[in-house]
Design a protein around this nucleic acid. Structure first.
Lengths: 266, 266
DNA sequence: AACAGTCCGTTTGTCGGACAATTGCAGATA
DNA sequence: TATCTGCAATTGTCCGACAAACGGACTGTT
C-alpha cells in the first residue's frame, strides 16, 4: 500500500538565477527604471547575501536578455530589450531548427503584404522621404550595375532590407514589425545568393517603386497587391536557382548574415 | 579643412563576452553539436587562457541565450533555443515598449486567420484529435459555468490559448508559429480580464467549434473567415469593457505572482 | 569666469585559490 | 547479473586581491 502524499517537484535554482529573477522582477515592477544605473555589484551582493561573483553571474543573464546594457566600461544601465536583438536571436533559432525556405516564404507572404497595407494607411511625409532616399540609392546601384560595373551585392541587399524595414517601421505596429524582422534577416543571405545569379536587380527596384507609388497615393490595396507580387517573385527566383523550397536554410546562410554588422548603432 | 581619416569605433569587449562569442561560433559551426555536454569550465579556462570565473560568466550568457541548457545539477549541454523562451522574451519586450492593444489586435488579425488557413491545409487526424480533446474540455467548463458554478477563468483562458497553439503547431510553419506565440501570450492576461466581465464563454467555444468544423472539412477559406470573426469578436469585447484600444498593455499583466524566494536558505 | 589638467575614491573586470555538494563511473560485492 | 560503494570530476559558491577605467572634486592658468 502506498502513501498518496503528492510531493511537488523540488526546484533548486542556483543562486545566480535567483539574483536574476529578483532583479528582473524589480525592473518589470518599475522599481528599477529604464535608464537608471544598476546598483553596484558589491551592494547587490550585500543585499542578497551572496558573493559578488554570484551577483555578477546573475547580471550576465540580465545582460544577455537585454534588460541590462553595458555601454563601454561604464556602469551598466537598466534598458528595454531592443527589437533587433530579439530578432537576431529568433533568426538564429530558426536556422538551428532547420527551418525551410518554404516556411520562411509562407510567413513572408502573410506578413509583408499586411505590413505594406499598414504602411499605406499610416505613412507620413517623412516616411515617404525616407523611402525615396532608399529608392534613389537603389536606382543608382542598378544604373551602375547595368553600366557594366561589378555588382555590389552586399550594398544592394542592404538597401533591399532597408526598404522593407522602413515599411515595417512606418506602419506603426511594433508587434508586426517584430514578427517581420527575423523573416527579413533570413531573406538577406538568400538574396545574396540569388541576385548575382539571376541579375534581377531592376526587377526588385521596379517592385519597390510600384509599392512606393501606392504608398504615396495611400492606395493600401495596391500596396498589398504589389507586395504580394514582389514576394511571389522572390519565390520564383529561388526556384529558378534550382534550390529546393523544402531544404532547410543551412548554417552557411547564418554565417553570411553574421558578416553584416548589427544595425544597432548608437 | 578636415582630415578625412575615418576611425572605426574601437571595440573593447570584455573577456567573458569573447568567451561567449567563441563558444557560440563553435556551436553555430557545428563543431559543438546539440546534445553534447559543454567542456568542463576548467578546461575551457585553460584553452582560452582566462580564469574560470570569466568562463563562467561567458557560460551565463550562453545559458540565457538558450544555446546551453543546464538540466538540474548535471553537466550543461549544448541546445537549440526553444520557441517558448524566445516568445516569452518577445512578450516581455513588447510590454516594456508599451505596445497597445490595438497593435496586438492588428497583428493577430494578420496572423491568426493565416494560421487557421495553414492549419486547414495541413492538419491530420492526430491534430484533429488533439483539438477535439481541447474542445470537449472547454465544453465541460462552459457547461459547468452555465450550471452556476464559479467560473475557473484561469483554466478557461488556458484552454483558449491551447486551442490557438495547437492550430499554430499543426500548420507546420514554425516561422508563423514563432511570430504567433507572443501575440497569444499577451492576449491571455487580457482575456482574463474580459471574460469574467462579459461572460462570453459560450461565444468563444462556439467560435472554436466552427473553426474546428472547417478544419475537419479542409475548408481553409472557412477556417480563415471564422478565425477572422473570432478575433474581431475579441476586439469588440475589449471595447465593451471600456478599455481603450490605444492604452498600453499594463505591466501588471506580465508580473508573475510569485513571492521573492529567500536567498539565504542554505 | 571659462577652461584644462590632476588627483582620488568607486566600480568593474579579472585573477587565484578554496571547499561543499552532486554526478558519473568503475570496481567491489551479493 | 544486478546492486552497492567509493572515488574522481565538475559545478556552485565563497573569499580576497588588484589593475584599469570612470566620475567627480579640486587646482591652476588664461
Amino acid at each position: 500500500m502506498q502513501e498518496n502524499h503528492e510531493f511537488s517537484r523540488i526546484e533548486r535554482a542556483p543562486a545566480y538565477r535567483l539574483v536574476y529573477d529578483a532583479i528582473e522582477r524589480q525592473i518589470l515592477a518599475g522599481r528599477l527604471r529604464v535608464g537608471d544605473p544598476l546598483p553596484a555589484e558589491i551592494q547587490l551582493a550585500d543585499q542578497f547575501g551572496v558573493n559578488r561573483s554570484t551577483v555578477r553571474e546573475g547580471i550576465r543573464l540580465l545582460e544577455q536578455s537585454g534588460l541590462v546594457e553595458r555601454d563601454g566600461g561604464k556602469r551598466p544601465r537598466i534598458s528595454v530589450p531592443h527589437y533587433l536583438d530579439l530578432a537576431s536571436s529568433a533568426s538564429r533559432a530558426l536556422i538551428l531548427h532547420s527551418v525551410t525556405f518554404r516556411e520562411l516564404w509562407e510567413a513572408s507572404m502573410v506578413l509583408e503584404p499586411a505590413i505594406a497595407e499598414h504602411a499605406a494607411r499610416h505613412i507620413d511625409q517623412s516616411g515617404l522621404d525616407e523611402l525615396l532616399g532608399n529608392l534613389t540609392a537603389m536606382q543608382a546601384e542598378v544604373v551602375s550595375i547595368e553600366g557594366g560595373k561589378p555588382a555590389d551585392v552586399l550594398a544592394f541587399v542592404g538597401l533591399d532590407r532597408e526598404f522593407h524595414e522602413i515599411l515595417a517601421k512606418v506602419g506603426g505596429n511594433r508587434v508586426l514589425a517584430l514578427a517581420h524582422e527575423p523573416v527579413t534577416s533570413l531573406f538577406i543571405p538568400t538574396g545574396q545568393v540569388i541576385l548575382p545569379r539571376l541579375k534581377t536587380y531592376r526587377r526588385v527596384l521596379d517592385a519597390h517603386r510600384y509599392i512606393f507609388d501606392c504608398l504615396a497615393a495611400k492606395d493600401h490595396a495596391g500596396a498589398r497587391s504589389w507586395m504580394h507580387k514582389h514576394m511571389d517573385d522572390f519565390r520564383r527566383a529561388y526556384e529558378l536557382t534550382a534550390l529546393s523550397l523544402d531544404a532547410p536554410l543551412d548554417a552557411v546562410s547564418l554565417s553570411m548574415s553574421e558578416a553584416t554588422p548589427s544595425m544597432r548603432s548608437r
